[in-house]
Structure formats: C-alpha cells, structure tokens
Design a protein around this nucleic acid. Structure first.
Lengths: 350, 350
DNA sequence: AGCGCTTTCGGAAGCGCTTTCGGAAGCGCT
DNA sequence: AGCGCTTCCGAAAGCGCTTCCGAAAGCGCT
C-alpha cells in the first residue's frame, strides 16, 4: 500500500460518534435520529439532524450496509449504453434513481453472452439487492439455468430483480407487447400492398426476437399468406449487422419490395445499404424498424417504426425493483404505437 | 423493518471465515491469499483460492471497503446518458470498468445546474474515491466554488477525480482540442466560399462552448473577416434547442448561407427546421455540427462535423482516475478529425 | 551449537454503523 | 405513596473484512 506523501491532509470526515458527541447524545440515539427509526423524541431527533448537517456529516454507506442497514444502490445491466435503445432505458432508470436518492451501478454486456452472468455476480458481490436486467436475454445457450440460479439467489436473500423485455425469468417484468407491435407493423406494410417482404432478424435465443417474429408471422398468416415464403436474414441488432443482412437478403431475393428490421439500428443499416446500392427508398423498397429510437426520425428517409416508451420502461422497472415484493411476479405491459414516416410507401406498380 | 415471510431461505453466503476454516488456515491467511498481499506462500495461497472458488465465496465489498481495502467502484457523472455524446463516453468508461473488474456508479445531471454538486456529494457519501466528471461544466453560476471545494475534499481524502472536456478544475483532464477542431470546421466552410454564417451556441459558462466559439472566431478572424458580424443564437445542446435557435437565426438573418452548431444534436435540429421551412441543404444553406455522434452519418443530409473519439475519451478518463496520482494534474489531449459529408457545400452563386 | 535474520502464519484489534437489550424516567392509576 | 406501564435513551454486541504485531519456524552464519 503505497500511501504517498499526503497533501496538507484535510481533517478526516466526521463520523457518527462525532455527531453524537457534538449533540450531547449517545451513538445509538444519533443513529436512530438520522435513520428515522422510532424511539427518539422529535426534538432530540431534530437537534441531532441539525448538528449533523452543520458539521457536514455524511454517513458511511459501507458501514451502514455492513451493519445491516438499507442499501441505497441499485444495479442495472444493459447490453450497451451507447445503443440508443438501452441509452433511453438507462436514462429512465437514472432519472428515477436520482430522484429517489439512490445510486445506480451500471454495467454492460456488450453482446458477450457469458458476460451477463458475470455482471450479476459482480453486483451480488457488492451486495446490491435490487437489480434491473435490460440485456434482452441474449445469453449463451446453456447459461440460462445459471442465470436463473443467480437470480434466484438474489431473491432468496431478500433482493429484488426486474427484467425488461424478457419473460423467461420468474421475476417482475416490464414487457412491451412485441408481438402486437410487430403485427401492427406487418399490417401496415400489407395494407400498403407489399407481398414480397424480407425480414432482418436478430440473435437466436432472444425472447424479444421470437416475439417480434411471431407477431410478423401472425399478421402475415392472418392476411392469408404463407410465412414460409418470407426470407429471414439474421442481424445482430447493430447498424452494421443490419446492412450485412440486407445485402444477403437482397442478393438472394432481388425482387423484395419491403424489408422489416427487428430494431431501428438494423433498419438504418438497411437504408444505408439500399441507398448505397442505388435502390430508392421507399419508391423501390420500403424499410421499417422497431423501437423508434431518437435518431429514427432524422435518418433518410425518416423511419417507419413501432414506438416503445423506453424511458418509461426504465422508470417502471426501477419502480418494481424498489417496491415491496408481491407474492407472485408482476408483469407491467407497456403500450406501443405505429409511427408511419417516409421510409414506407406502396410498392412499385409495374 | 418489515421482513416478510422468508421464502425457503437459501443458506447464507459463505464468509471469509468459512473459507479459512475449510482450507485449514487462519482468517488472516485467507484474507492475504485472496487479496494477493504478500506474506503467504504460493502453495497456501493457491489452495485457499481453490477452496474459495469451490465453495462459491464472494467477498463482501462493504466489509472490505470498511476495513480499509481498495474500493472497487468508480463514479461517473454525465448530463444525460440518452444523449449520444455522453452515451459514447459512458460506453468507453464502462468497457474499461468491466474489463478491470470495477463497477461504475452513474448518475446524470440532466442539465440541472445544481445537480452536479448533489451528485458528487452522493458519490462521496458512498465513499467512492474515483470520479469521472463528464458533465461539461454546465453549473449554476456561483456553484463553481462549491464544486471545486467538493472535488478538493475528494482528492484531499486520497480520492481521484478526472474531468472530460473541461479545464477549470485542478485535476486530471481529458481534453479534446475544441478550439482547433472548431477552427478546422470554420476553415472548411470558408474554403467552400461561405461568408455569411450563423452560429448556434450553447449554454453560458460552459468551457466547451467557449473553446469552440473561440476556435470559430480565430479562424474567421485569420481569414480577414470581422467576427462581430457573425450572429450567434444560443441553443441548449439538444435537437429541439438547435431547431429553435435556427429559427431565430434565420428569421433575423434570412441570407445566411451556412450555420454551424456547436454540437451534432443541435445541427440535426437545424437541419430539421431548415428542411421544414423549405430551405434546401446544402444547396441554399450548409449545416455543420460537432462531435460526430453515431447518428450524424445517417441523418439527411449526412452531417459534416468534427469527430471526437468519445469512447476513447471515456476510457482514458477512467484510466487516469485509476492510475496512481501524479504530483500535478495531467492533461490528455485527444485528436479530432474533420469529417466532410453532404450537409456542407459551396454557397449559392447568385 | 547458538546467534540473528527472514519468511510464514495466527490472534486480535478495529473500520463506522445498526440494533438488541436493559435501565432510567415519566405517566396515570389504585 | 406505590404500582405497573410506556417512552426515551445508553452500553455493548456484532456485521465481514484487512492489517498490525508477535510467535514460530526455517535459514546461513560464526
């Protein structure tokens, strides 16, 4: 431990015992006054609080946590804060934590399927008992059980976890109706007259992907068409992955009149590939996305997509995780909205 | 403390003393083995570690921190994780924390000038000793001193803080060369032939704003023109603020041939207002931004801007904050790059 | 052999807090 | 007055860990 030549060392921060002394009460009383637990008269409590804030007392959260007090930290695990979808969710979570005086521990899995387990473990090491999982369930096949076990040991220890957009875990969940949204999107395209569409899917094992695909399939089937004729190329939920998937799709099926991407960044990738390849959007090919992340309205052409209330979803997940547990997992369904912009139009008539 | 009917309570997590017992060594030795401090033979250490991982031991970070061990949490304060600029910075910071086994506490100030102080205080309460400040210095006038004091008490207690894109605090800093970047941008516009330009500025008291304005001014002056003739409308670094500022600018000065926004979201706002108003970009009016956030390349028309290595900036700031302190504040300058896209062109000739 | 030295380990103190437990007042009642 | 009861407060026991200090053991040397 090299401690290095201390600077003109400032006085050590005041401890609770200092506050107690200054207020003329015992340590126990001071603690009770500041934590708001009962057993102190209102006047004494007020006095202690006054003294505390006057000497600039800041409770040591580690000592507090060690001694069995309430933790004031929550954990948030996302794929990638740079991705606008997760960025918006994080924004919602942070707004709420900041408002309630909590601090949020954020870590990202960056599409490493085994990272999620490690992140939850790390959170657990820090005795974080309230965890929001917003990585969309993209886990290494075979790891699901480990994750479930990890989650269970959090809840077994009195902790709480909530997931966003995933429903394979027996915990509180905030769930957009991915299937319904996707169906609405598909109906929009069908209504425009599209018949030969391609889909840019996402990683396997992702409930979000499954649900959205199911929604597309349902609506397509209900219109009387055969889903098996619809080509699906898998992307990885990034812009680049979307562009690559579009390339594969269009090379194999040059006559597609519309491509639906399962999230906005991939739709943007599709736009970029198509425009680059000289295909006009939406005149020759329509493109649609999902989520309505902020940039979607400013790309060219502005993206038709399904809007999800991402900020509110983050906020709700945090709320669930801080609320006293229910006997059985709660599911909060969120709304969605078809946002029609200029990237979709009727297919060419010739 | 309502404790609620415990579920089939899982066994309590193993403690260090359990590991020690299982390994047949003393508590002290077990601790030394796991923290990697010297004084244990290699074999014993290996044995203890093996036993620890076998029983699934997870150190209690609160106890560790209380007892004087190294803290493994860092703090990050940003304006808004939903803003792509800060999102990218956070991504860089998180990549590094995750890699090094740290956990990051993130909170946002959301353009509330007095929030930054509160956030630093909260971090301090949690004994977080390594803090990255990426809010760009947008503080309530008069609060600077308080913030400086707060920062000083962090460093006085042996903590470390680093700032990104701000240089009024005597701590390590990661600094893009805002002035040089802005100058390059201005020279690009001047080279295209623009003479009547307008600027969309940012909040007062922001060193980033000052530096970028200074760069524009310098380059304009060096070309022999009078900066005082250049209209500046203040935005708030958001898309909407940029649109509003553009409206003011163009109404007061309809003959402007170019508008420079001090960040990309405001430039996007400018694009949206201009296009809405029926002005063609770049044929009638050129638009340029700053930062090159990811969406910049996909907007219409693709944005000419100055690229800043945001992810690397986040990573570097974290590195600074975890590195043993230097005797005097370090400044890491980052590069920048003019990215010319389709939103700028020569002014109309008529 | 016996000395001092280094290396390796165990005992125990203590980090700052919450909380249990028991004692001291203060109350109304018989 | 004296009783039990409630209300308020203080002493002390930990929470799980790191680290200081001293003991034990192993080494080369005279």
């Amino acid at each position: 431990m090299h401690r290095m030549a201390e600077r003109p060392s400032s006085p050590p921060p005041p401890r609770l015992v200092d506050v107690a002394k200054a207020a003329g009460v015992s340590l126990a009383t001071a603690s009770r006054a500041l934590t708001g637990s009962s057993g102190v008269s209102a006047e004494v409590a007020a006095h202690v609080r006054a003294v505390a804030s006057q000497v600039g007392y800041v409770p040591n959260s580690h000592a507090r946590a060690l001694a069995g007090g309430q933790a004031s930290m929550v954990g948030l695990v996302v794929h990638d804060v740079g991705d606008p979808y997760f960025g918006e969710i994080a924004r919602g979570v942070l707004r709420e934590t900041d408002r309630r005086g909590y601090l949020a521990l954020i870590s990202q899995t960056e599409r490493d399927p085994r990272a999620e387990l490690a992140r939850i473990r790390a959170l657990r090491a820090h005795r974080v008992t309230s965890i929001v999982l917003a990585g969309s369930g993209y886990v290494e096949p075979g790891t699901e059980a480990d994750i479930a076990a990890e989650v269970r040991s959090v809840t077994a220890a009195g902790g709480r976890v909530a997931v966003i957009g995933r429903h394979h875990l027996p915990v509180d969940a905030v769930l957009p109706d991915n299937a319904a949204g996707a169906a609405a999107l598909m109906r929009h395209l069908l209504g425009l007259g599209h018949r030969r569409l391609g889909v840019i899917g996402g990683p396997e094992n992702l409930t979000t992907v499954e649900d959205r695909l199911a929604g597309l399939r349902t609506a397509y089937g209900e219109a009387g068409f055969d889903w098996r004729a619809v080509p699906v190329a898998s992307g990885d939920f990034t812009r680049e992955g979307g562009a690559a998937a579009t390339a594969r799709l269009m090379r194999a099926h040059p006559r597609l009149t519309a491509v639906v991407a399962l999230n906005d960044p991939m739709a943007v990738g599709a736009l970029s590939w198509l425009l680059n390849a000289g295909r006009r959007v939406p005149d020759e090919v329509s493109v649609a996305g999902f989520d309505d992340v902020p940039p979607a309205r400013d790309v060219y052409p502005p993206l038709t997509t399904i809007r999800l209330p991402m900020v509110a979803m983050g906020r709700q997940a945090l709320d669930l995780v801080l609320r006293p547990p229910a006997t059985r997992p709660r599911r909060r369904r969120t709304g969605h909205e078809l946002v029609v912009r200029a990237s979709t139009a009727a297919p060419p008539t010739h």
